[in-house]
Design a protein around this nucleic acid. Structure first.
Length: 730
RNA sequence: GCGCGAUUAGCUCAGUUGGUAGAGCGGCGCUUUUACACAGCGAAGGUCGCAGGUUCAAGUCCUGCAUCGCGCACCA
């Protein structure tokens, strides 16, 4: 008697029909929550934990293929470990993404209603942003489910919810009390378009053509200087030359009063090592208020720092020619004036990198402002340390924590060459400016009253206190993510069991933004590492290798892919042929190929079932079949080892190859005569072999293609979920 | 300027510790044989960027070069 073939199996596999139902089934089982696995005896109570915290997607809209990549890689790791018997937690959440979200809503409001955020006011603007964030959140959660992500939704967190706010304020206060957070009036990166400061890492350099002008401030001035920004020269206080420069030695120490395009300026000639003799005339007009390097020179020489450009990138000095003009206009005006005066000596076209803001593309205007910073070099005492080479109670710095945890191998980055990039970044790291002049985000927990300052978790008692208007850089709260999600500062069970987490999986593009900040924050707050391993995936590009973007019209929506080919196909296509840390290209053709693969397994199942007799389960394997079973186990072992070593692309290809080339093309074909054999022993052995290999193939493929494998598993009449089936290799 | 990565079949890319090259897609020919045409079978297609070196043996290690891409710094 052959088994009855389920009706569904007689038709080609239809992913759309299956996937939603299967996800619901998983979700209703409760087994995304590790405690439920333990309760039902599917995971041992003392099993080793395996934890991944989901990099929280920004609530700025919808997920893209990069997110699909992240979800796929993590879900593979998670499902594999769950089946291997680990106490497996994958914790979901979303990120408020401060500037990104607010500027998105601001644009929408501006477009739809012609109103700015100031027209709406802080409260109304925040209502709008929150509503948008909620919408985004719902869309994103739905997308993650469509992708098959086996996330523990009972633990979902948001970077701006109540618990995370407590964590943020607690850390801020601790750092403030330790003197690591300070407020200072110094030069920062100002984004005139976004009307906020940004950190060094939020700057994107764009190559542009510029004109380098060489001129003297006035007729009688002894030294010519070169600049691409003549309009800033009204803020000059010095001309710096290299100490060894013979050409200018005689002038060092002298001071001059000149009137530059109507603005009186006082110039001192100074010698400083930072000046390159070879560049331009070898003399640098020092504008302390509007250039990072000049600010530092001013520090060394105790120079004044007059601000001449305001927050709107407009001139704030001069007569009617300059006052109130945009910097670009002012530049033309000054160049014309220089020419009229006959002061220009040279004009040359050069390539220049212009600093722009990542989110708004506005041109950055360095200017001095009273802001909050984290000191990355200041020594402090780390009371309790689990960090290798930093003893409890010893002095350390945030930079040292970041360097040591990776340097000692306590945190392992895959691929390892990214460690070099990481160290290089740390070496160049300056204090982190954490305050932002936007409304959406964690408000700085500092209150002022006349000359008093109060930093606390709650507002101070008494009347007359006003809270700092600014909010925190979104990466401040993201930095706490591995432990804030687990309920810190409360000493929760979750923290004891699941922290430090096992793997942090994300794109290499946020190595500095996020990974480094998590290491910094966790090291400082818990004296521990946030994760043991960092797995970096590459960027997903289109078939031509272009970055996917809405404006280019080449963006793929994971939802569309799932609707057209099935989420399984999309997942598999993202993994195969993609080495960690390397950008990959994805095309519909590639995804289509994987849809065919899902159908192939479906058809294999039809064949196996139609030739299966349940009495064969007790049959003994013939010597031939024993060999085939053993060969499969060798393959399964290799696949397991590859997953353990994070070579997911190799593992995916191997299981694909085995199922199609070995199992279907070879073993199944060779089985046809054997299944028709008169020899019952041979026939039954083969029936059992095919059924066994099919089941184990499904198990091993499940982390990669969870839906089709689970769908088939249910058709095989199994009484458990494939999701909780035990992995065939130990 | 400092650093990193890439260069393998027409296209997109794999290739863990060095042992005489692989996949997907595309193209070609044949096959409608009852698991599957979302298929099967077969053939074609590569001096693994270039030049040296180490080794019995190198796509895999070392040196140099070229081209492309990226990061950081500079950007007066």
């Amino acid at each position: 008697m052959n088994s009855e073939i389920p009706e569904k199996l007689l038709k080609p596999y239809n992913p759309v029909e299956e996937e939603n139902l299967i996800y619901k089934k998983w979700e209703e089982s409760g087994y995304f929550t590790p405690e439920n696995m333990i309760k039902d005896g599917l995971t041992k109570a003392d099993a080793e934990p395996f934890t991944i915290i989901l990099p929280p997607p920004n609530v700025t809209g919808i997920l893209h293929m990069g997110h699909a990549m992240m979800l796929t890689v993590q879900d593979i790791l998670i499902r594999h470990k769950r089946m291997r018997g680990f106490r497996t937690l994958w914790l979901p959440g979303t990120d408020h993404a401060a500037i990104a979200t607010q500027s998105k809503v601001e644009k929408e409001v501006q477009k739809a209603e012609g109103k700015s955020r100031h027209d709406l006011g802080r409260e109304e603007m925040l209502n709008r942003v929150n509503a948008f964030a909620q919408d985004s959140h719902d869309t994103i959660v739905n997308q993650m489910k469509v992708m098959g992500a086996s996330l523990d939704w009972s633990r979902e967190a948001f970077t701006l919810d109540e618990k995370r706010t407590l964590a943020v304020r607690t850390v801020f206060k601790k750092m403030y009390d330790d003197g690591l957070i300070y407020r200072s009036n110094k030069i920062i990166n100002w984004d005139p378009k976004g009307q906020t400061t940004i950190s060094d890492d939020e700057i994107v350099y764009e190559a542009r053509k510029a004109t380098l002008y060489t001129f003297k401030y006035s007729k009688g001035f002894p030294i010519a200087i070169s600049t691409t920004r003549p309009e800033t020269k009204v803020g000059d206080v010095a001309v710096a030359v290299h100490p060894d420069d013979e050409r200018y030695k005689e002038y060092v120490g002298k001071e001059y009063d000149v009137v530059f395009c109507g603005v009186p300026i006082h110039i001192k000639i100074i010698a400083d090592e930072a000046v390159e003799k070879e560049f331009g005339t070898g003399a640098l007009g020092v504008t302390p208020a509007h250039s990072m390097i000049d600010w530092e020179i001013a520090d060394r020489h105790d120079l004044p720092r007059p601000q001449v450009i305001n927050e709107y990138a407009k001139m704030m000095v001069g007569d009617e020619r300059l006052m109130g003009k945009k910097v670009a206009e002012a530049r033309d005006i000054i160049v014309n004036w220089l020419k009229e005066e006959g002061l220009v000596e040279k004009e040359e076209a050069i390539d220049q990198n212009v600093a722009t803001a990542e989110r708004t593309s506005g041109i950055i205007e360095p200017l001095p402002k009273l802001q909050w910073f984290i000191d990355v070099n200041k020594p402090f005492t780390l009371a309790d340390s689990n960090i290798n080479d930093i003893a409890s109670g010893s002095q350390t710095t945030l930079k040292e924590i970041m360097r040591t945890t990776v340097g000692t191998g306590q945190i392992d980055i895959i691929p390892d060459y990214f460690s070099k990039t990481y160290f290089h970044w740390i070496d160049n790291l300056r204090d982190w400016c954490i305050s932002r002049q936007i409304w959406y985000g964690h408000r700085i927990p500092v209150w002022y009253k006349e000359n008093e300052i109060y930093c606390g978790i709650e507002a101070p008692e008494g009347a007359g206190w006003t809270q700092d208007e600014d909010t925190l850089d979104t990466w401040f709260s993201s930095g706490l993510w591995t432990f804030s999600t687990m309920g810190w500062p409360e000493q929760t069970e979750d923290l004891k069991i699941y922290h430090p987490t096992s793997v942090l999986e994300t794109g290499y593009d946020i190595l500095f933004f996020w990974i480094a900040r998590m290491i910094l924050m966790t090291g400082y707050t818990l004296g521990d590492i946030p994760f043991k391993k960092v797995y970096l995936h590459g960027l997903v590009r289109d078939a031509q290798g272009k970055k996917m973007s809405k404006s280019l019209g080449n963006a793929m929506d994971p939802l569309d892919i799932a609707a057209k080919y099935g989420a399984d196909a999309g997942r598999m296509a993202l993994i195969i042929g993609t080495a960690p840390g390397t950008d990959s290209k994805i095309s519909e053709e590639k995804i289509k190929g994987q849809k065919h693969f899902a159908n192939k397994i479906w058809n294999i199942t039809r064949f196996v079932l139609s030739n299966f007799d349940s009495t064969s389960v007790n049959a003994a394997f013939t010597p031939d079949d024993t060999v085939i079973a053993a060969q499969w186990h060798e393959t399964a072992k290799k696949i397991t080892a590859d997953i353990d070593a994070y070579r997911l692309h190799v593992a995916a290809e191997d299981i694909y190859q085995y199922i199609w080339t070995t199992f279907a093309d070879k073993i199944l074909e060779e089985s046809k005569p054997l299944l028709a054999s008169e020899d019952i022993a041979v026939k039954q052995s083969r029936q059992k072999l095919l059924f066994t290999i099919l089941c184990e193939n499904l198990t091993v493929l499940h982390p990669f293609m969870p839906f089709v494998t689970e769908a088939i598993w249910q058709l095989l009449g199994k009484d458990n979920l494939l999701m909780t089936e035990v992995w065939p290799i130990n």
